[in-house]
Amino acid sequence: MTARETGTRLLLAAAIALLAGLPFVGVPQFTITLLTEALIFAVWAMSLDLLVGYAGLVTFGHAAAFGLASYAAGYFAREVTADFFVALLVAEAVVGLVALTTGFVVTRVSGVAFAIISLCIAQVLFQVAVAWRSVTQGMDGLVGVPLPSIFGVTLGTGTPFYLLTLACMVVTYLALARLVDSPFGRTLHAIRTSEDRAAAIGINVRLHKWIAFVISWAIAGLGGTLMVFMKAGTTPMSLHWAESGNVLVMAIFGGIGTLLGPVVGAISFVFLRDEFTTRFTAWQLAFGLVFVVVVLAFPAGLAGIFSRAWNALWRARS
């Protein structure tokens, strides 16, 4: 391990320790709530990054996985048991099934067609959530989801739930970091660079895209499950394409193709939105402007800027 890698790991460990310590050093409850939301979005944005940044599949329908898991976990928790892991398992089963079937079909295409078809699939789920009133309560949304419990202990809102979310986020990060560094991850990289060349050297492009799609949906499902417990319910808007757009903004703003980027992007998104909406009437204007500038001038996002600085620092020392 080089000194630089050790340095990066120490920095990450310090960041996690800092996040875990925040509730115990007098950080206001409101900030913890915002941070919980940000970390859930971080899980979701990382799952999107696997598709967009590593497999090269830009999706405008990633809310589908998130919202579907919210509905499945929330409905199950309300009707059967509020055990977090059981609800998560149920949500993953539902999301996995939908991802396996729709993924099998949509991974036939890529580029703009993939973006639009994924949008269509998400809108189908959105419309079903609106129309299937006996289960989803239509536009009113699913309400009355109980607090989650882990091994029989009910988890209170605030700090306990925040720590659960942080743990989920860290596990997701580590698992994805391992995945993108594996031969599978390298193969995805080859596919993103050139689908034709990857196919020419014998890679089963569709199979790899399909697996990436299912994994991405499964991780988004974890985010959706956390979110339904945090908000004690969900609405069809969680499946709306505006949400798919938001998560895309987070991932790209933070920097796709790096796992830390989406985390940084999600945290900045939540806090900037809070800041803008309370102080400034046209937050969409400011946010749209920042997003356009990032896409045009800094395709590597915030993380790209950071990592360039970090690398430069280590180069300067050696």
Partner: peptide, 15 residues
């Protein structure tokens, strides 16, 4: 990329 940029523009115009 044009899809992403026009998406951002849509945000800006509505804002």
């Amino acid at each position: 990329y044009t899809l992403l940029v026009t998406f951002g523009m849509s945000f800006m115009l509505i804002g």
